[in-house]
Amino acid sequence: MGTLPERLRAAGFPVVEITPTEGGAIAEGGIALLADGRRVFAKTVDGPVGDLFEVEATGLATLRAEGGATVPAVRHASAHLLVLDVCQPRPDTPEFWAALGRRTAALHTSTVGDRFGWHRDGWLGRMRQDNTWDTDGHRFFAERRLLRWLPEPGAEAALDREDRRALERLCAALPELVPAQPPSLTHGDLWSQNVLATAEGAPVLIDPAVSHTWPEVDLAMFWCSPRPPEADAFFAAYGEAAPLRDGWRERMPLLYLRELLSALAHEDDTWGAAAMVRRLVAPFRRR
């Protein structure tokens, strides 16, 4: 399995065998059987990755300590290796997704603050997530979550000048499109593939891109990305625990722009991200 076994052994994990796992877009991952019978999940990345794994480990710890989320315990985090406790496949039942809805509502309502950002920059995929503190949520979302992607070569290639100008006008209109709301601690990449389960079947969150921002950004990621039909129970349960603001469904595609632009920057447009961006910015084109 490439470099993963040797990096595990160098970190003191006596590997017997590794079963590769699927789903990682940028990392080589697998479940490692150790000589003492334990199993751990491990992943590594070749090439320069900076503090990718250290930030992920800190994000998991923050979600647990500040928001009460269930996350896998971190056994090792270094420049090229992350080792976590093994999680179980999620059961796609309405009850499971409703439990996640209630837990996500608890995460958001228990961490309400007055600043947008985080104490350190993070990662979304293989690119930096700018978490510089700001007290203005509309400015933070415009500059750090949308316009931030435009200079990336992938986004430059996918969007023409009129697309970019329309996006800039949309950003200027954000105070009219998204009601002012305080920030909360968010997972930041909350879609179905980043949800696993404990041995008892409770939801576990993995692969965060943590920051303090509008809770609806987490909801938009979950609403707009692929999910099983049973996951509709998430939104009903969330709304019972933390009432949703009027018009929230209409705002979901707008807030999902962050993910669409990130996909373009990562040159991952096999699913029509550029076309979706153009539809969303179309009302802001000059005629």
Results as ranks from 00 to 15, higher is better:
G50T: 01
G50D: 01
L52W: 05
L52C: 03
L52P: 02
L52Q: 06
F53K: 08
F53R: 07
F53A: 03
F53H: 07
F53P: 05
E54M: 10
V55S: 01
V55G: 00
E56C: 01
A57M: 09
A57D: 12
T58A: 14
T58M: 10
T58F: 12
T58H: 14
G59H: 09
A61C: 10
T62P: 06
T62W: 13
L63T: 08
L63N: 06
L63Y: 08
A65W: 02
A65K: 03
A65M: 00
E66Q: 15
G67Q: 07
G67R: 10
G67I: 11
G68F: 03
G68D: 00
G68E: 00
A69K: 01
T70W: 04
V71W: 08
V71Q: 09
P72Q: 05
A73V: 11
A73T: 10
A73D: 09
H76K: 12
A77M: 13
A77D: 11
A77L: 11
S78F: 11
A79R: 13
A79S: 12
H80F: 05
L82W: 12
L82A: 04
V83F: 12
L84H: 11
V86W: 02
V86E: 06
V86R: 06
C87A: 14
C87R: 02
C87W: 06
C87S: 14
R90W: 15
R90Q: 14
R90K: 15
R90T: 15
R90H: 14
P91A: 14
P91R: 12
T93N: 11
T93D: 12
T93M: 13
T93Y: 09
E95A: 15
E95R: 13
F96L: 11
F96P: 09
F96R: 08
F96W: 13
F96H: 09
W97T: 08
A98N: 01
A99G: 06
L100M: 08
L100R: 05
G101Y: 06
G101T: 11
R102G: 04
R103F: 03
T104R: 06
A105V: 04
A105Q: 08
A105M: 05
A106K: 07
A106H: 09
L107Y: 02
L107V: 07
H108W: 10
H108S: 07
T109I: 08
T109A: 12
T109D: 12
S110I: 02
S110Q: 05
S110T: 13
T111E: 12
T111D: 10
V112D: 02
V112H: 06
V112C: 05
G113A: 14
D114K: 07
R115T: 15
F116A: 02
F116V: 01
F116E: 00
G117K: 00
W118F: 15
W118T: 03
H119P: 03
R120Y: 15
R120A: 15
R120K: 14
D121A: 07
W123Y: 09
W123F: 10
L124F: 02
L124K: 01
L124N: 03
G125A: 03
G125V: 00
R126Y: 01
R126V: 04
M127Y: 03
M127W: 03
R128W: 04
R128A: 13
R128M: 11
Q129M: 05
Q129V: 00
D130I: 08
N131Q: 12
N131F: 11
N131Y: 14
W133V: 05
